[in-house]
């Protein structure tokens, strides 16, 4: 994103440009959460099949990223954060992005169906549809609720991973979905608070643009309060445990404290320190999600080492 220049349209795209269309940074989060969903499931999956399944989930997510870059090329050109992407900078044509996205979607869904099962493939197909069509085409430019509903797309990967292993959907995978789903609005609204100018310029109706920053701060607090119980309930399912509960409790206290701090902040103070608290809260939100899933991995590792917590009340057993 540093070497932003308008480039000659006739220049041949390099392999790396096509790779950039798949949004590798979003992909890494998808790979991580899908892998956690797969590994914490109580069913053993052959390592080759687990690797291939996660790869196809990642390719599917990348494909929806390419479709998003095809559809949003006009917005991306206006926003500073996205100007360097392959389509707005002219290295890849919008049509190429579309075709790459469509074909990779087909390949990823078909191969996941053959490698794992057709429930997982169906969930992947729905995720791609949800991100590329429901979020990018319908919601993003139409409503400030865009990321609330669109957040579902990012929340599906652990559920797909779980479906790869178990062939089903259960309370554990629904709660993992819920954790990401409820986390998405405060995460993106914190970003929107200090990236507001970009969204205003591009005409994307983010909450601070349509309802003001005061309302955004209130909504961040509301969603943070609603988010807190999800992780704590997850601690009492068969994939949770006391370690996960402790991690979740600490993270939730920090998150609520941060959200309340943002709620209490006066806009003048925020502008004076260039949104330092908002940036800090945004960083905290990344750790929040990452450490919750690390916590699930730790619990699964403890179970594999036959350390089980007899005293721990477990829901559904």
């Amino acid at each position: 994103m540093t070497d932003v220049t308008t480039m000659d349209q006739s220049r041949d795209a390099e392999f790396g440009d096509y790779f950039a269309l798949l949004k590798p940074r979003v992909m890494s989060l998808v790979i991580f959460t899908a892998a956690v969903g797969l590994f914490v499931a109580p069913v053993h999956v052959h390592p080759v099949l687990a690797f291939a399944s996660i790869l196809f989930i990642a390719i599917g997510a990348g494909a929806s990223g390419a479709l998003n870059m095809w559809w949003d090329a006009d917005i991306d050109l206006v926003m500073k954060r996205t100007q360097g992407r392959p389509v707005p900078s002219g290295r890849v044509t919008a049509d190429d992005a579309k075709m790459l996205g469509l074909w990779l979607s087909v390949i990823a869904v078909a191969m996941l169906g053959l490698t794992a099962n057709f429930l997982a493939a169906g969930l992947l197909a729905f995720t791609i549809f949800f991100y590329a069509v429901v979020y990018s085409m319908w919601l993003k430019r139409a409503t400030p609720q865009n990321i609330v509903i669109g957040g579902a797309a990012g929340a599906f990967p652990p559920m797909i991973g779980w479906a790869v292993a178990t062939g089903g959907v259960s309370i554990e995978s629904i709660l993992m979905f819920g954790l990401i789903f409820m986390w998405t609005p405060p995460h993106f609204w914190a970003l929107a608070l200090f990236m507001n100018d970009d969204y205003t310029k591009a005409g994307v109706p983010m909450l601070p643009v349509t309802h003001g920053k005061r309302e955004t701060r209130k909504q961040i607090l509301i969603y943070s309060v609603l988010l807190a119980p999800v992780g704590l309930i997850l601690a009492f399912t068969p994939i949770g445990g006391p370690v996960f509960f402790a991690v979740s409790a600490v993270l939730n206290i920090l998150f609520l404290k941060g959200a309340y701090g943002l709620y209490r902040r006066v806009e003048d103070n925020a502008e004076a320190d260039k949104y330092a608290a908002e940036r800090k809260f945004f960083r905290l939100s990344l750790y929040y999600l990452f450490l919750h899933f690390v916590g699930l991995l730790v619990e699964s590792g403890l179970r594999a080492a036959s350390i089980d917590w007899a005293f721990w009340p477990q829901w559904g057993l």
Binding site: H46, P47, V48, L49, A52, L114, T115
Partner: peptide
């Protein structure tokens, strides 16, 4: 690789 894994399963 997937084929080998599935058959050995």
């Amino acid at each position: 690789g997937i084929t080998v894994a599935k058959m050995s399963d």
